[in-house]
Design a protein around this nucleic acid. Structure first.
Lengths: 145, 145
DNA sequence: CGCAAATAGTAAGTATAGCTATTAATTGCT
DNA sequence: AGCAATTAATAGCTATACTTACTATTTGCG
């Protein structure tokens, strides 16, 4: 079990806990949204009419994955997609009224649940952890093509 | 982009960087091993003859996922599986000679690559980060059924 | 012993997550 | 204008990751 204390393993575990806490709270809220779907909706809300590739860039995903995510958001009726007039290759994505409603409802829940992800840490430790995480990511080149 | 600074998002990004660094180095080493496959091999090497459910428990995965992982390790010839004599439901898993060879070869590479995951942090920060990550995980109940 | 409960593994289904390749459209350069 | 390079999206492929359901065993208990 040499792998146990390694950074990669710890980070994977944290991610596992994170997604678990997320879906737990979504379920309690009676909504079936994944972390990625939430992140995508958040990006779309902030940039209405954004194209899929830009959504992917904003939340650091690759284009292929985002396509599927937006497919499912569209099926749920949270997002609408139409061909851009400026560039007929691109799809402009927007939240529907229902999508905006859901996002407004869910944002405070998601904000609150963040603390639970790092339950084992006290406030000061949590701040330190987040500061270091931001620093570690901020100083790295984008990993997504 | 309210989601950007949130713990969940940062952790997802870190995990993304982590797996990216990992596969980069595996590719350079001429091996096609994923982080999970490595973790599984490490657990199996430490507990020869372990059953699949225990492998899953050791690295915090669920049984169904581990089944597929071990399938692929078996296909690569790194792992051998046979029905336990004590419990005919269980499969005893062991590294093959080739599997042990590969693990021996890869362990130092994997150990070395851990630092690269947290490239943006200096030594002290890296230690702090890992300590807090361990604490955050250690104090949480097992998320896997 | 006999049978209900628990357990190991697999199967099927959904959702990431990323890769390469392909198609369609746009841009940049000459 | 003409064409190469680029770009947006999708398709197909592989590998996680977790859920519920199912089969085969084994265990625990009366």
């Amino acid at each position: 079990m040499k792998a146990h204390g390694m950074a990669g393993h710890l980070i994977r575990r944290l991610n596992q806990v994170s997604t678990h806490v997320f879906s737990q709270h979504m379920q309690e809220a009676g909504l079936d949204l994944t972390p990625v779907q939430f992140a995508a909706m958040d990006a779309i809300a902030t940039h209405p009419g954004i194209d899929q590739a830009s959504v992917a860039a904003h939340i650091a995903y690759d284009r292929a994955t985002i396509g599927g995510v937006i497919d499912r958001l569209e099926q749920k009726g949270f997002v609408a997609r139409n061909v851009s007039k400026r560039d007929r290759r691109a799809r402009e994505v927007r939240l529907t009224d229902r999508g905006q409603e859901v996002l407004d409802e869910i944002l405070p829940v998601v904000t609150a649940l963040q603390e639970e992800i790092l339950t084992g840490l006290d406030d000061a430790e949590r701040q330190t952890f987040l500061r270091l995480a931001r620093k570690a990511i901020g100083s790295l080149p984008d990993q997504t093509g």
